[in-house]
Design a protein around this nucleic acid. Sequence first.
DNA 1: TGCCAGGCCGGGT
DNA 2: ACCCGGCATGGC
Length: 211
Amino acid sequence: MKQVLTRVYSTLYRHFGPQYWWPADSVFEIIIGAILTQNTNWQNVEMAISNLRKAKLLHAKKLYLLKTKKLAQLIRPSGYYNIKAKRLKCFLKFLFNNYNGSLSKMLNKDLLSLREELLSIKGIGEETADSIILYAAKLPIFVVDAYTKRFCQRHRLTDINASYAETQKVFMDNLKEDARLFNEFHALLVRLGKEFCLKTKPKCKECPLKN
DNA sequence: TGCCAGGCCGGGT
DNA sequence: ACCCGGCATGGC
């Protein structure tokens, strides 16, 4: 298994090169994006974030003070905008109630404590929490998303209905515990997924892993 | 034009 | 402990 993963990683890296994830200008933007991208095309998320940027609202305090209704309208292109506005507000309430709005204070703790805290916030599940831990806090946890699961299922690294935790374990038990590696590997799987074999209807013609 | 996208929650078995 | 419906836009 270790060798399989190593070969997959090096093949993808050779093919695509570094992905420079997470695509965002700030830690705050990473977290907002992580919530907005739940079951949503990243292109739509970019439109929503662009709206916030144009309105100069990409700051914790500003969003914290913004009415939920107004926030919902701004993030409309990301879909599920009512529920996502509530989720963003829920996160911001947590941030201000517990850390006086300081992201660095919130993120500056050990991985398991941070994960537990994030999961206690309504609207933040395992993937969103792990994305924040890996890409915002830069701590070594492997992010499992739809592409990651499909990858593991189709390559028989897990069984067909493996849980989030089981899928995550495949990577974490067989790779060096290294945030930089986890970052690049997950980003490469998403890149592969968007372009080739990990869509719900796979198009594997030119998949880099074909051999 | 219908289907899909970088999930999560709440209520029901 | 799982399973399912609901949430919604924009792109192809």
